[in-house]
Simulated scan of single mutants.
Amino acid sequence: MTIRTLAIAGALVALAGCAAGPSPEELESIDKEVAQAQANAPAAKPSQGGEGSLWGQSQQEVFADNKAHQVGDIITVELAENTQGNNSASTQAERQTSNEAGVSAFLGLEESLADKNPRFEPETSIGTSTSNEMDGSGETSRSASLSGNMTAVVVDVFANGNMRIKGRRAVTINHEVQNMVLSGVIRPQDIGPSNSITSSQIANARIQYAGNGVVARQQDEGWMTKVLHTVWPF
């Protein structure tokens, strides 16, 4: 077996082993970016309350806006994804044609042909007939639903005030790890009074929810089956 063959086989195995969920490298990159955003967050301003004030050094101002607006702030995302699509098509077509033609006289050659073939009749010597019929139909349907809450971190603030958020959540139950990854761009005016925003208001939203464990492995195809599905030409 040549080196080229081994390289192709290795590439196919790697392709077959790719999971639909976020890779460990992607999760690590998100963690680093969120940690960097929190490290770059501005320091909290000390309270201006004087001696005898009802508000202490560690308490927030009574009229302060607690909505996310700067790097390092956190915001709650209300996941409410419901998608459904249906598409159907039906086509029916039919066509039939029939033609007959003949030559009553053609320089006497019709008599010569008739002598050689008694069944030859010049008046009806040409005839064509075609028939074409097509009947096709197709239908597709897909639906998906995802609900819940997730908290993300502001990792960047643009000049127009829009913010890029990122976050991930990992939940382990009976050795089954469920990873949820969320990223996108939000507007400050879409943030609600409770410092939350719905997932439908996130631009360029990317939401991934995938598991890794015994259940996920049982639902996945074997690597050889994936390879065959990838290279099988029929």
Results as ranks from 00 to 15, higher is better:
residue 1 M to F: 07
residue 2 T to Q: 03
residue 8 I to N: 05
residue 9 A to Y: 01
residue 10 G to L: 12
residue 11 A to V: 14
residue 12 L to H: 02
residue 15 L to A: 15
residue 16 A to W: 00
residue 17 G to W: 04
residue 19 A to S: 15
residue 25 E to S: 13
residue 27 L to K: 08
residue 30 I to N: 03
residue 37 A to W: 05
residue 43 A to R: 05
residue 47 S to E: 03
residue 54 L to E: 12
residue 63 F to T: 11
residue 68 A to S: 04
residue 75 I to E: 06
residue 76 T to D: 11
residue 83 T to S: 14
residue 85 G to Q: 15
residue 98 S to A: 13
residue 98 S to M: 10
residue 103 V to R: 05
residue 107 L to P: 02
residue 109 L to F: 10
residue 110 E to R: 00
residue 110 E to F: 00
residue 112 S to F: 10
residue 113 L to W: 07
residue 113 L to V: 09
residue 113 L to M: 13
residue 117 N to F: 12
residue 119 R to E: 13
residue 123 E to D: 07
residue 131 S to L: 07
residue 136 G to Y: 12
residue 139 E to G: 06
residue 152 A to Y: 00
residue 154 V to R: 00
residue 157 V to K: 08
residue 162 N to D: 08
residue 171 V to S: 06
residue 171 V to N: 12
residue 173 I to Y: 06
residue 173 I to T: 12
residue 175 H to D: 13
residue 176 E to Q: 07
residue 178 Q to N: 09
residue 179 N to V: 07
residue 180 M to Q: 14
residue 186 I to P: 04
residue 193 P to S: 08
residue 193 P to D: 11
residue 194 S to A: 12
residue 195 N to I: 04
residue 207 I to V: 15
residue 212 N to T: 10
residue 213 G to R: 01
residue 214 V to L: 13
residue 216 A to Q: 11
residue 221 E to D: 13
residue 228 L to F: 08
residue 228 L to H: 02
residue 233 P to D: 05
